[in-house]
Design a protein around this nucleic acid. Structure first.
Length: 269
DNA sequence: CTCAGTGTTCAGTG
DNA sequence: TCACTGAACACTGA
């Protein structure tokens, strides 16, 4: 479920496992998941050491000893696993990096929306993908400047990676719930106070999720996410889809092209 | 068998 | 050109 907190959690996992290792070989199940020609990728990665990591929004960037950047994007279902024995190869391993120490790193992705490829530099990549500031770094003035002239629903713009990078569907809903803003409200009608609340909610939701390593059931009780029905032991629908503050029924609607959960009492029109 | 889905991109419209 | 909307993408699992 890779939004910014998941990708940050993957990055930390990578730093504790694959970082510093040297690639000797690459296995790719489906070339359609590559954004760089297979032969070129193989050639560029063979012998390369993974020297550093960074992240912009949901994009995971790995600096190679050659100076090139290996980019992983996890799509809807991407994940990583570092392992040694072939029998531990995870199901849906789509790309496997083999290291000189005998270990492997699997890029797991059941739905195959994830992508793997090379970039010349972090800046080039950011520009090429038209990414805005990372959602953890965006300042209130930046946020205000990119929202105040836009008429689209605020939720749709929170999902726009060129405005801020890293917010996905559940975080957009969570942030708007915490900031008590109606998701379909046109962005240019947000008051300064609402923009402040929005900015603070982005920071709080993302930092909380990262601190909990993106494990949803550990999130605070007043988080809307518990009402989405992704819990480990799903409650019946009627017990689940209620506002954590009011216990009243949530509204579920399509907004910004995605399923949107919100509370009309907390987030009035 | 049908359908929704955590993300991104592109075609079409105004 | 820009802002915006909605469909398409590939696949799994309910």
């Amino acid at each position: 479920m890779p939004e910014l907190p998941e990708v940050e959690t993957y990055r930390r996992y990578f730093d504790l496992t694959a970082l510093g290792k040297t690639i000797i070989h690459l296995e790719v199940e489906d070339h359609r998941q590559l954004t760089t020609d297979y032969d070129l990728l193989q050639q560029s990665l063979k012998g390369a050491t993974l020297t550093d990591t960074s992240r912009i929004g949901k994009h995971f960037l790995i600096t190679l000893s050659s100076g090139k950047i290996l980019v992983l994007h996890f799509g809807m279902t991407g994940n990583l696993m570092y392992y040694r024995d072939a029998e531990d190869t995870p199901r849906f391993a789509r790309v496997i990096f083999y290291f000189s120490n005998g270990y492997k790193l699997a890029f797991i992705d059941s739905r195959k929306f994830g992508r793997v490829g090379l970039a010349d530099s972090i800046e080039t990549y950011k520009k090429q993908k038209n990414l805005g500031p990372d959602a953890l770094d965006v300042t209130l003035p930046q946020l205000k400047a990119s929202l105040e002239k836009r008429k689209a629903p605020i939720k749709a713009l929170l999902l726009d990676q060129s405005i801020l990078a890293g917010v996905g569907n559940w975080i957009a809903d969570e942030v708007l719930f915490q900031a008590r803003i109606f998701p379909a409200k046109p962005a240019n009608t947000l008051t300064n106070l609402e923009l402040e609340h929005l900015h603070r909610a982005i920071q709080v939701v993302l930092q909380t999720a990262i601190d909990e390593e993106a494990i949803y059931h550990n999130f605070p009780k007043d988080f809307l996410i518990h009402s989405r029905g992704w819990e480990d032991s799903p409650k019946p629908v009627l017990e689940r889809e209620v506002c954590p503050r009011h216990q009243s029924a949530l509204t579920i609607a399509k907004m910004g092209g995605r399923t949107t959960y919100f509370c009309l009492l907390c987030q009035p029109v």
